[in-house]
């Protein structure tokens, strides 16, 4: 019992330290804003733009699979024109944010952890400190902010590509009437409940994943195994955090019937 308590205590302590770490990273204002912007956009490129391919390809495949599955079920009830509705609601509410989050944790989160971990191992973080430059401000803050900006945008792109690919399958292959495909979607998708809730979800996932990624990189053991372990932890913890948070957020957003 005592070990359980102390384990729980340790976990809470870790979360607290990670919180202080994040707070310090984003609350120390940059000395020069042009420089800070440059660092931020460089990260937008490596975190966001480089993740585009995997997001677009996965979005397309998931949209196509959803259309096939949805069609085969809906056609039993003669309501295959509702496939547009099914596709857009599943993607916008759930699969867009969640799958983007999982892919992002694997693609960008692990890269962030490994990069910061390697900087620590090669004494670059110590170098910043010895130069009187705060590595939290210089290294962690632009990466965190860029990650948090990119993920909601990636999630929206994921959903849009998914809907478009699903449209190709259902309209041009399975022969659903195009007009009813789009009108069923238009009638049932609401901007502030469906689209915005999806964006809010992906924003929350983004904060969780990028926070875990930069923190794991920053505290990793400065050895090659240490970096390996930290990278694995980022992907595992990040994915679990997304799935857990998704349940909570879905219950809060759509749970009151």
């Amino acid at each position: 019992m005592k070990t359980l308590y102390s384990a729980i205590y340790r976990h809470i302590e870790t979360v607290g330290q990670a919180g202080v770490f994040l707070f310090q990273a984003i609350c120390r204002l940059p000395v020069r804003y042009d420089e800070a912007l440059k660092l931020y956009f460089r990260q937008i490129y490596s975190v966001g733009v480089l993740s585009l391919i995997i997001i677009i390809v996965s979005g397309a495949f998931i949209g196509m699979v959803l259309a096939l599955q949805g069609y085969s079920i809906l056609t039993r009830y003669g309501s295959e024109s509702a496939v547009g509705q099914l596709l857009s609601l599943t993607l916008l509410r759930e699969l867009g944010p969640v799958v983007t989050g999982l892919l992002f944790a694997g693609r960008a989160g692990s890269a962030l952890t490994a990069e910061i971990g390697l900087m620590k191992t090669t004494e670059q973080l110590s170098s910043y400190e010895m130069m009187g430059i705060d590595p939290l401000r210089r290294v962690v803050a632009p990466r965190f902010l860029a990650g948090v900006t990119c993920m909601p945008i990636l999630a929206v792109i994921f959903s849009a590509v998914g809907i478009w690919a699903g449209m190709l399958v259902s309209v041009h292959w399975l022969g659903v009437y195009e007009g009813s495909f789009w009108s069923s979607m238009q009638q049932s998708v609401y901007f502030d409940t469906d689209v915005m809730n999806g964006v809010i979800k992906s924003l929350v996932f983004a904060v969780a994943v990028v926070w875990i990624a930069v923190y794991q990189g920053y505290i990793c053991q400065p050895t090659s195994e240490g970096i390996g372990r930290a990278t694995t932890r980022t992907v595992v913890l990040g994915s679990l955090a997304i799935l857990g948070l998704d349940f909570l957020l879905t219950a809060a957003m759509f749970g009151d019937f």
Binding site: L118, T122, E123, Q124, S126
Partner: peptide, 8 residues
């Protein structure tokens, strides 16, 4: 630094 520690 002993390793140089240039920013990569």
């Amino acid at each position: 630094f002993q390793s140089g520690a240039l920013f990569s």
